[in-house]
């Protein structure tokens, strides 16, 4: 699924990231970075409500290409800048975690574990 479609499905605001043709194959949703680091393999996108720099660091360590902050959360400029430096696209959506994940799943994006 292209980033463009994800932005449309989530009615998301793009905080950084220029390549709307970026292909995202799988996604995961969690507020616990510990769990992301322990259980997640080869996911392209992280949905989270955690807006501190560690969300970007975690995505970086896991080679993720996109972070979407849920529940209308907007991170500080420093967090967005860190993501920009690492080539990670950043979105924010007003939808809550369950709804945001559900919309993407319904449109064909998978978690990689089923």
């Amino acid at each position: 699924m292209k980033l463009r479609e994800i932005v449309e499905l989530l009615d998301a605001q793009v905080l950084c990231g220029d390549d709307m043709d970026l292909e995202i194959q799988t996604a995961c949703g969690t507020d616990m970075m510990s769990d992301a680091l322990a259980f997640i393999e080869d996911q392209g996108m992280l949905l989270t409500g955690l807006i501190n720099p560690q969300s970007v660091r975690t995505a970086e360590m896991l080679d993720m290409r996109c972070i979407c902050f849920v529940r209308g959360k907007v991170p500080g400029d420093d967090v967005v800048e860190l993501a920009r430096q690492r080539g990670i696209a950043v979105l924010t959506t007003r939808y809550r975690m369950f709804s945001a994940c559900g919309k993407l799943y319904q449109a064909g994006l998978r978690g990689g574990d089923c």
């Binding site: 616990m32 970075m33 510990s34 680091l37 322990a38 501190n52 560690q54 969300s55 975690t58």
Partner: peptide
């Protein structure tokens, strides 16, 4: 710490893994 996204007790086991 849990509010910051860590402290789930997965750190050391995951490091070992």
């Amino acid at each position: 710490v849990r509010a910051l996204g860590f402290g789930a007790g997965m750190g050391l086991p995951n490091m070992k893994k």
